[in-house]
Design a protein around this nucleic acid. Structure first.
Lengths: 157, 157
DNA sequence: CAGGCTAGGTCTGATTGACAGACTCAGCAA
DNA sequence: TTGCTGAGTCTGTCAATCAGACCTAGCCTG
């Protein structure tokens, strides 16, 4: 009763690679802010409570990785500053964020419910992640999902 | 041009709460292993390269949080041991894992592609996350998604 | 019985990052 | 010039990660 997965290498695993970018307490919280339109350093800092140095580090890392980009802005009466915007790579993290939100809402929310909802711009209805297969079936049970080696899979040495 | 989000508290945000559980480099990697059927300490350790102490800590945390449970097993000729199984709360993290996998595959994979694929048990077709609204529309553009305050939202103090 | 094995830890010391709190900088307005 | 403030940087403390070593506890074998 030995799992087949043991024969396959995880060396080039994209989950592990993604978690090198995302796998830290504050990164998705920062991205939540940017997705919510909160793009400026001090606004983010005040809202989230992240220490300045952590926020600086996180933002710099996300810019370096191509998830965020810095955009110059200048309020009247102020000097030029930068705010943080999502790149396409960053925008493509919406499903991750909505999936985390869905899980958090189900298991970790207060009795009155989630403080954040995500709506479809055109019709106003609430948006969720779904699992679907290429044949169009919706997957509602985790047991109906099967991991298997993909095109880049290698045998273990 | 001040984001509306600034008027709302993030104190009870379920993304932040979820990231207190998940927001660390190795946690989802551990969960990937368990989802792949690799449930024993040393198998996980060898496959992932996680230091023992970190793996111990991670597993204990996930058990404490209700994401994993320990199940006794005993190989013939060996003493009783425990392996780690997903709870329902853990199984409900499949969409998060598949979402992270999808993003990683798109932006971080090697040229030959992803080493891991997720299939629908019944028909064999590949499974992905999709964003859909309650009206049944599929959302393919991040710009068609709108965050707004949910039922548990509070005004900022 | 003692010794060997091995899965699942625990321990130690070095390194690194998080964090609190303080300080600095740079352009603007008065 | 001074004051303001957004966006950092710095310092010292604490905690987690990590490499590597060591320990434990049942089983089997001689």
């Amino acid at each position: 009763m030995r799992p087949a997965a043991l024969d396959w290498s995880v060396e080039n695993c994209t989950i592990a690679r993604a978690m090198e970018v995302l796998g830290e307490r504050w990164t998705l919280v920062v991205l939540r802010e940017v997705f919510n339109g909160v793009r400026r350093f001090d606004d983010m800092r005040v809202r989230t409570g992240i220490p300045r140095q952590v926020l600086t580090n996180r933002l710099a890392m996300l810019v370096k990785r191509g998830v965020l980009r810095r955009e110059p802005y200048r309020e009247p009466g102020s000097r030029p500053r930068h705010e943080y915007r999502l790149t396409e790579m960053g925008l493509d993290l919406w499903p991750v964020l909505v999936a985390v939100l869905g899980w958090g809402d189900r298991y970790l929310a207060d009795p009155e419910g989630s403080p954040l909802s995500v709506a479809h711009r055109d019709c106003g209805a609430e948006v969720r992640v779904e699992l679907r297969c290429a044949e169009g079936h919706e997957i509602t049970e985790a047991r109906d999902v099967l991991p298997r080696p993909g095109p880049g899979a290698h045998r273990r040495a």
